[in-house]
Structure formats: C-alpha cells, structure tokens
Design a protein around this nucleic acid. Structure first.
Lengths: 198, 198
DNA sequence: CGAGCGCTTGATTGAGTTCAAAAATCGTGG
DNA sequence: CCACGATTTTTGAACTCAATCAAGCGCTCG
C-alpha cells in the first residue's frame, strides 16, 4: 500500500491551494523506539501513517497499568479517533515499539478532507467500517474467550506482530498479566512436546 | 432525530430512479418482543433503524452463552457491520427486547449509497467515527475495569437503557454472569443504606 | 562484566463462575 | 382481576482462572 503522501500526490484533484495546504500539514518523521508521539490529554491530536516500524496506542489506568489498544505496523494508520468523535483531548498514549518512520497529519484535516475523498484510496466509510468490524470481534473476544483462547486467536490473526513485540505487550493487548501469558505459553509448549492431544 | 425514511424523503437530491429504488429497498416493520431479525450466518444482512422500542445484537459462544454486543433504542441504527466489512455472513444475532417499530434497509445499499451522501444527515465518517470511539472505550473498559466499575459506568452512560432492560441482559453486556451482577447490586444498595463511605 | 529488564516459576489470594435452591416478579389464561 | 406457572433475581457454598506477590534465571547493552 502506498503511503499517505504518495497517494495524495498522485491524485491532483485538489486545487493548488489545497495541495499547498496538504504539504504544509503532512510531514514525515523518524522516531526512535520508545519515543512518545502523543499523550492522553494532549492538545493536538494527529493521525500517524506508519511507513516503517511499529507503533502502539494504550491507556494508563489509575493503578499506572498500561492497556494496549492496538498496534500499527507498515501501511497502517494509527490514531485515537475518540478525540475527534467527542471533540475532546485524546484518551490514548501513542509511542514507537520499534524505530519507525511515519507520516503525521492533523486529525481534523484527515477526517474532514482526506476520508471524504474516495479518490485518494482512503475511503472513509470503507476503512472505518473495517475498523468497527475489527473492534466488534475484539469486544466479543474479551467477553467470551479465556485468556488462552484470546492468545491463540491473537497468534492466528497477527502472526507477524506477535514476533516483533515483547511478550509483556502481547499480554497487555490481551488484557492479562505478563505472568499469566508466560504460564499459558509454558503450558502450550509443554503440551506440544509431550505430544498430548487436547 | 428523524427516521431513515423521513430523512431520505426530505432530501430529494437523488434522481427519481434512485428514489424509486429507495422506496423499494427500505420498508417499515413492527416486531414483537423476542422476535429475531437476523441470525448469525444469515444470507441477507440488513441495517435497522429503530423508530420505537429496543433491539439488541449478540453472539452465542460454543457453550450456548449469549454475549450482548450492543443495544439500540429510539433513533439508533442497529447492524452487524462485520458482514459488510469482511464480505461474509453476519456474526451476530439481532432481536427485539421490546415490541418495536423499525425501518429495514439492505446493508449494501446503506453503506454504499446512504452513508456516502452527507446531505442525508447520515454522514458516514461522522457516524462511523463515533462508533469507533465508543468501541474503543468499551475495549479499554473490558480490559482495565472490574465488573463493578463496568456496571457503574454502564449506569452512567446508558441510564435509560438500564431501566428498560432485564438485569441478565445488562450482565451479558458487561461480560459477567447474572449472579455476579446481582451480588454487585446487593453490595451497592447495602452500602448505600448503611451510609458507609468507600 | 555487571545492572537492569524481561521472562519464568511457584505459592497465595481474590474476583468472578458454577451449581443449587429459594424468593420475587412477570405474564397469561381462565 | 386473580392465580398459577415460568422466568428472573437473589443468596449461598464450592470452585477456578487469573492476579498478585516473591524469587530466580537469562539476556542484552552500556
């Protein structure tokens, strides 16, 4: 998939004014592993297109515990849409899990201009409908599946991500503790090597 | 908020052909409490605009247990977008919690035509962005909050729904058992009457 | 090469489930 | 409108999965 800027520049449908406005609004950045791109409550909320590397978004609860909401690797868009939807500061933190290269764009501009122009290849309804569907599955998973089932489902759904991300972050994404995930993995590999079925 | 049909008929932007096509595609129906509108795996997937009453969508897991994904009361739209997003049969069941009056519309038509015309007042990106934001909160809730916190949050967020829905369905929405919810409520009212703080 | 971070392992605890049965509420037909 | 059966809610006891607490191991990277 083409990057955000590439796609935009290939579809010169906008007036030159608008193009001008885009080039001033979108910019490329290299970020180091661990670098924080957005904090809860930040005044600016932006969207991030990942050209290279891996980002995550997460909340921090009243006990200082992180809960990862999503990962975004190459060609994915990362953002906290809740701030746009509710016209409020963002709820989530966003940082880089790996050294990354990203394109940054103000959220308003993205939602109000880019998503509205299907010609760009960023069809709003399409992308958002998919996101809703993914979140629907996630909610059902969290409500009905055990920690182990959720982990197995994660491995099936995001095998690439699973290899690039430290275990404790997978645990955080699944909504369990690192210890619990470690025990699940131990049990799974033991079961494998013993040759037990079911 | 105006109903789906009302809104459409007030914005005669479409050609008469298109209007014709709409009137054949959208229709009104009265459904009795308990009536099932859609089942997992159904061939047709449609969206439902609730004019009156209350619908719910839910999944049923391998142990026959229901997990309620969402409620929709007056002026809300109910649908299983996952089927549209993944071009697959729906994952969810949808039925009526109360006697209801609804407008029914094929999902393809809704997503591909109606959401694309902001003039209708059904701005796709707007509605979908809000839905994403709501689901984001729900996921974070499920990952980080206790059963009790989730219940209290539900009461704050959907006080009207809470009064109209049987307790076991609230439990199902929260991802806990009816017994657990009953105990939480008992504890809460005891605490209230005893005047205890914290 | 050592200090710190991440993973593992074990013991203990606790929130929520399961199972069972009684009490309350609802709905329906007479 | 009442009565009765069915469904819902409550309550309690036993249990389970995952959290917490604590200790030890193994990397890696400074």
């Amino acid at each position: 998939m083409k990057s955000f800027l590439e796609t935009l520049s290939e579809y010169p449908i906008l007036s030159s004014e608008e193009m001008q406005s885009i080039s001033t609004k979108v910019h490329i950045k290299k970020v180091a592993k661990g670098e924080i791109l957005q904090k809860k409550g930040d005044l600016s909320n932006r969207i991030f297109f990942v050209k290279k590397g891996l980002l995550r978004s997460y909340s921090i609860d009243e006990n200082e515990k992180e809960h990862i909401f999503m990962f975004a690797s190459e060609d994915w868009i990362m953002s906290d849409l809740s701030s746009h939807a509710f016209n409020a500061p963002p709820e989530l933190y966003i940082d880089a899990v790996e050294d990354s290269e990203i394109e940054i764009c103000p959220q308003d501009f993205f939602v109000n201009v880019v998503l509205q122009h299907p010609e760009f290849g960023f069809s709003g309804t399409d992308k958002l409908t998919k996101r809703v569907a993914v979140l629907q599955k996630r909610v059902i998973m969290l409500m009905s599946a055990s920690a182990r089932e959720r982990y197995e489902n994660f491995l099936e759904t995001y095998p690439k991500i699973a290899q690039r991300v430290p275990q404790r972050m997978i645990a955080s994404y699944l909504g369990i503790t690192p210890e619990a995930l470690s025990k699940i993995r131990g049990e799974m590999s033991r079961r494998k090597t013993t040759g037990l079925i079911i």
